[in-house]
Design a protein around this nucleic acid. Structure first.
Lengths: 139, 139
DNA sequence: CCTTTATTGTACTAATTGTATCATTGTATA
DNA sequence: TATACAATGATACAATTAGTACAATAAAGG
């Protein structure tokens, strides 16, 4: 199966800066094969328009990813996912990506006053019901 | 019917501090549905001007509400009513809140291509390391 | 080829937001 | 009155996003 291009999903109330959300989602998509080495990313202006943000905000995200050697931005040409990311790096990236996502979720839960027990129970329930929904879809 | 934005009404002779009145009125508007989760509040300066008060007084009110998890203030962006209000209400609402939060987290994880197994493992690890960090703080 | 034009990212600046710190004011109380 | 303290105001700061002008590249037309 080919992972299709997926729009980035921003949460404007999450407290996380937009540019950070863009960075993390591109990292995740790369880690999970939704984006692949060599892929061209949208131009700063195109992505900005799609996300309804200023293009400098996208440019800032791209600059951070560029400094991390994850993408390569080329003035006048566009931005591309870096070729040949070392496999051990990409596995690491994949793990870090999920870790970041999970960390945010757990922090937010605790911030709202939920207990460790409540959180882990809810995750179990939620995963379970997701699996059941999936099973009934598969029939 | 849609509850419209309502100006805050201050009583400068009531003996109650301004910031307390702001806190209570915002809480009350939230409780009455005039304000809803996700709503953006006026900036500290805008509300201060409207109320003819120093913006630090509004900032103080916002800080109290932020610490109470009722709003989320974000430097450079604004302040918002928390998407998932803290459990000052019912246990049922509280549970629904966590369910919604968890659901978002799990959907996002799957959307990015992580497996059920990976997600639940990462949640366990993350909870564990959080608990350890907390324990070392408690010494 | 060379020139022009469109498209791309970059750099710098400005505007808007909340934060931190200290000064001032007013009031209660010894 | 003098002092302590809480409330409010003034000022400087930091973070985020937006605006504007520019530079590099590629493509099109001559």
């Amino acid at each position: 199966m080919t992972e299709k291009k997926q729009p980035l999903q921003l949460d404007f109330h999450s407290g996380l800066p937009i540019y950070t959300q863009i960075v993390e989602q591109i990292q995740s998509q790369l880690a999970n094969g939704i984006l692949k080495p060599g892929d061209q990313l949208p131009t700063v202006r195109a992505l900005a328009q799609e996300l309804r943000v200023n293009f400098n905000t996208v440019a800032r995200a791209y600059r951070i990813l560029d400094e991390a050697r994850i993408i390569s931005t080329q003035q006048g040409r566009g931005t591309y996912i870096t070729e040949i990311p070392p496999p051990e790096v990409s596995e690491k990236l994949r793990n870090e990506s999920l870790a970041a996502l999970t960390h945010r979720f757990i922090n937010e839960s605790f911030r709202l006053g939920f207990s460790e027990r409540e959180v882990s129970q809810m995750v179990r329930d939620s995963l379970k019901s997701w699996k059941e929904a999936k099973d009934s879809d598969d029939e």
